[in-house]
Design a protein around this nucleic acid. Structure first.
Lengths: 250, 250
DNA sequence: CTTGCCAAAATGTCTGACATTTAATAGGCT
DNA sequence: AGCCTATTAAATGTCAGACATTTTGGCAAG
């Protein structure tokens, strides 16, 4: 419950918030646990109480902690976290050891949502949206298989899926593009672990992405929905969420 | 651009934030406009700079405004708003004159999302979820048609749809229950306006809700998806988003 | 055993001064 | 005139310290 082992930081309330948030996301405290007091944080990080209070305000706003006058600060349960807050997504990316349960939940959401969004995109996409999809797909193609461009490839991957959400032209759906980055970053970290069938997997994934693009361009709702689901099915395999390609396509 | 006409308030930064947020949501300022300065807000509302800064921090966190040292505070565009932030939903409920475009966007989202969520619910619902659905549905039935219980009926309506999201047992989907309250409150305000075919509409809506419950209880994914879509189709008519029941059921 | 009071500890608030950033402005030089 | 620079003004950001408020627990009287 102490704050031993937390790294120091350069400066600024934002970075302090990020640091504490990542410790929380990594499971450093359990739900219901007492969080360090303001003055202890001030002392440990050598910052003013202002900075600490600002940082804690961010954690409160994202549902990570709950503060009450007189009682103190306690850590909230995972179900109370505001997973759709952009700040939260920012804090999740590059997390060394993300909670596999959380990764699975986010993926399950995407698996159910993205086919619908792809369908919407066939109806709402305009020229600019198609260009964005096209550019992202070509970026993916260009960087595929180059080991040193792994990060860049992931960025194009994020851009591709984000472009689908944007193409839906719905204010609510497009908010959820934030979830993509942590989800996809987790994917490449996971696939870095098991280096099995690297080439097959990538080619297959690329082809499936291409079919989504094509379906949206043809404005074929059923095909887009199906293709998006196929992309995510491939991703599920690579993430190790489903261990075998034993499932049929329908 | 001034703050004439803004009502005063009882006290507390939360209420001040709520007040300013509602003014923003009501379109009091245009995107890109300059927002009042801290000291002006202090003077107008007779509160300390602390309270003002706390309130503005909330508005910043929800993407309503953007602040930069030296430049000031400017109002952000609607596409930058964090519509999925619980605070935002709280601020939206009971808004006197909600932006019809925004209401339509939120409804379009629900129309595409809830059928999928209902399908998930058939697979993931447990006993407690069915009880919650059942209780909400019976509450809706009990309060249907009673003019003085209009607000209570809306609450049961919210509870019913929220129960669907909860029954999906997915961390991301259940976050979106927040969107329901403003959406459904807008509905009853709208239906208060045109008092056409009050009884028919309510009976029909109730029956469609019942079919969702039944489908989830039977664990019939296709039926649940279809029934949820039918509920929202009814709602679309009542909201005046589609003006006629000219569309076929399939 | 209960009740009430008091003290300790935590977060919340206020105030005033100062720091920093940004934009506009005035001035001098070519 | 035109341009570059230094200054000023105006806004948000930060700090430090004292004080207020809320909650909890202990202690003592009944």
């Amino acid at each position: 419950m102490t704050l031993d082992g937390l790294p120091h930081h350069g400066g600024g309330a934002e970075e302090l918030a990020r640091l504490l948030a990542r410790a929380l996301l990594a499971g450093r405290w359990q739900p219901g646990d007492a969080f360090p007091r303001e003055l202890d944080l001030c002392a440990h990080f050598a910052v003013s109480r202002n900075q600490v209070r600002n940082a804690l305000a961010s954690l409160t706003a994202t549902g990570l902690i709950e503060r009450t006058a007189g009682r103190g600060t306690v850590v909230r349960a995972v179900v109370d976290w505001h997973l759709l807050d952009p700040l939260m997504s920012e804090w999740m990316v590059g997390l060394a050891d993300p909670d596999p349960q959380l990764v699975r939940e986010i993926f399950a959401f995407r698996y159910s949502a993205e086919p619908v969004v792809a369908r919407l995109a066939t109806e709402a996409a305009e020229a600019a949206d198609l260009e964005r999809l096209e550019a992202a797909f070509q970026g993916m193609t260009r960087t595929a298989g180059e080991p040193e461009a792994r990060g860049l490839h992931a960025e194009y991957d994020v851009a591709f899926h984000d472009a689908i959400y944007l193409a839906s032209h719905n204010l609510v759906w497009r908010q959820m593009g934030h979830l993509l980055r942590p989800s996809i970053i987790a994917l490449i970290q996971s696939s870095q672990a098991h280096v099995h069938q690297e080439h097959e997997s990538l080619d297959d994934s690329l082809a499936r992405h291409g079919r989504v693009l094509e379906a949206i361009r043809r404005r074929d709702p059923a095909a887009a929905e199906h293709a998006a689901r196929e992309v995510l099915r491939r991703t599920a395999i690579d993430l190790g969420i489903v261990d075998a390609p034993a499932e049929s396509t329908h």
